[in-house]
Computed example of a mutant assay.
Amino acid sequence: MILYGLKTCDTCRKARKALADVDFVDVREDGIPVNVLGDAFSRFGEKLLNKRSTTWKNLSDSQRSEEVLPLLQAHPTLMKRPLIVSGDSMWLGWDKSVQAELSDA
Rank of each mutant, 00 (worst) to 15 (best):
Ser53Leu: 06
Lys51Val: 05
Leu37Cys: 04
Val25Arg: 10
Asp61Ser: 14
Leu49Gly: 09
Ser53Met: 06
Ala74Met: 11
Lys17Glu: 15
Lys57Leu: 11
Lys96Met: 11
Gly38Ser: 08
Cys12Phe: 14
Met79Tyr: 06
Pro76Ile: 04
Glu29Arg: 15
Gly5Lys: 04
Pro76Ser: 04
Ile2Lys: 15
Ala20Gln: 13
Arg64Ile: 09
Glu101Val: 01
Asp95Thr: 00
Asp88Ile: 00
Ser86Val: 05
Arg64Gln: 13
Asp21Gln: 14
Asp21Thr: 14
Pro33Asn: 09
Phe44Arg: 08
Thr54Phe: 07
Cys9Arg: 09
Thr77Asp: 08
Ile2Thr: 13
Ala18Gln: 15
Lys7Gly: 13
Asp10Gly: 10
Lys14Pro: 07
Glu101Lys: 08
Gly31Ile: 03
Leu3His: 05
Tyr4Trp: 11
Tyr4Val: 10
Val27Glu: 01
Val68Ala: 10
His75Thr: 10
Glu67Lys: 07
Glu101Ser: 13
Ala74Tyr: 03
Leu71Asp: 01
Met79Ala: 12
Gly45Cys: 07
Trp94Ser: 04
Pro33Tyr: 04
His75Gln: 10
Phe24Lys: 11
Ser65Asp: 14
Cys9Phe: 10
Gln73Met: 12
Phe24Arg: 10
Gly38Gln: 12
Lys51Phe: 07
Arg13Trp: 10
Arg81Asn: 03
Gln99Met: 08
Phe44Leu: 01
Cys9Asp: 15
Phe24Glu: 07
Gly38Pro: 00
Trp91Asn: 05
Glu101Asn: 11
Arg13Leu: 15
Ser89Ile: 06
Leu92Glu: 00
Gly31Val: 10
Pro33Trp: 12
Leu19Ser: 11
Arg43Gln: 14
Leu83Ser: 00
Ala20Gly: 09
Asp30Leu: 13
Thr8Arg: 15
Arg28Tyr: 06
Arg81Met: 03
